[in-house]
Design a protein around this nucleic acid. Structure first.
Lengths: 194, 194
DNA sequence: CCGCCGGCTTGCCAAATGACAGGAAATGCA
DNA sequence: TGCATTTCCTGTCATTTGGCAAGCCGGCGG
């Protein structure tokens, strides 16, 4: 399995040189997941920092009525974790599940801390990743608040088309904050005509 | 004006000792805001890290229809900033405005970076603050998703009662994701009887 | 003391959304 | 292959929510 994606990821912030990246990459271990396998159960502490090289993962919680609500999708090149649980070492409210067979590179919290001490440039990188996670979450939150469901669907379709090929529509619906019925109507309306 | 709250804040993570806190505190400058004054305009980079010792601040964005939507309230002991903008140095989508006269202690991004270099324990503290900001945002997001508006109102009422004494209800309504009309009905229903 | 004005509530109606259920199609599993 | 399950779409109906406008109340200034 190629480390290309890992090297590319490490260099993505500009804080780590190609040589340093080649040096750090071996610390990551290969990770394989089978379809439907759980990476993380609600109540556990997220302990795996996983960069996906292939496959799709879904994160979800249960609402007060007991239904699953999808909180995120992850695809190739994205880091799969519950950042808030991982970084603060508190139990995750979310469960994460592979929607397809997946491959990637992973690091435990322990290993990451080791790297932080051994490599100052990786520590900076870690801070940057944390800041990006925050920015991503914020923009998703603002999107939920400021744009209607139909526009959010269009946006998801445009930005992560591969996800829609693997995720059941009911999961997409709850991710968008509507019922599967409504999503079906949205998709119907979006279809120009026929 | 007393630095108590600042010292207490610095020690809140357990990463900074009382002596170190007393050493770091002078780096913060006093900050005064008048009612209705803006701390940050949409499009600017959030550059001030402000710990409130008194007063209430509101953050908001504009939705696609052009209406103001409140994204957060801040009270005594809370850090007022747009973390995603501050830490990634990108323009903030949010505007922040004082709802009452405010006082607090502040640091610019520059000054904070200086402290990061000069004081390793403050760097750790900074990372912890970032992680907490992420956790806070996440839990707010999950709350929006998993609990109904009425329960969110009750929660806000219980956790930040002072905010409701200073914020107009229409701001509270948009913060909760409902119209002022609906909030009025929620409040009415909440009143046990009469 | 009076009248204006802004914030809040309330009633009425329309629109959007959800719950539920039936059925077609696709998928999984033996 | 064939049966069982899941996924998705659609129709009907009930509920929720929003838009609008009028009314109430309390503060402020003349």
């Amino acid at each position: 399995m190629s480390q290309d994606i890992l090297l590319q990821f490490l260099q993505s912030t500009g804080l780590i040189s190609p040589e340093q990246a080649a040096d750090i990459a071996p610390a990551f271990g290969p990770c394989h997941l089978r379809r439907h396998e759980l990476l993380l159960r609600a109540g556990q502490v997220s302990d795996e920092y996983l960069l996906l090289s292939s496959g799709v993962v879904r994160a979800f919680v249960h609402n007060t009525a007991g239904d699953e609500v999808t909180t995120g999708f992850f695809g190739r090149g994205q880091v799969v974790l519950e950042p808030s649980s991982f970084f603060t070492r508190t139990p995750s409210p979310e469960t994460m599940q592979a929607l397809t067979d997946c491959e990637g590179w992973s690091l435990t919290y322990q290993q990451m801390n080791g790297l932080f001490h051994a490599r100052p440039e990786f520590r900076e990188f870690g801070r940057s990743v944390l800041a990006r996670a925050l920015a991503t979450l914020k923009s998703r939150m603002l999107e939920m608040i400021t744009t209607p469901a139909a526009a959010r669907y269009e946006h998801l379709l445009a930005s992560q088309p591969e996800i829609l090929r693997h995720a059941p529509l009911k999961d997409v619906a709850s991710y968008l904050g509507v019922t599967d019925t409504s999503l079906s109507r949205i998709r119907n309306a979006a279809r120009p005509k026929k």
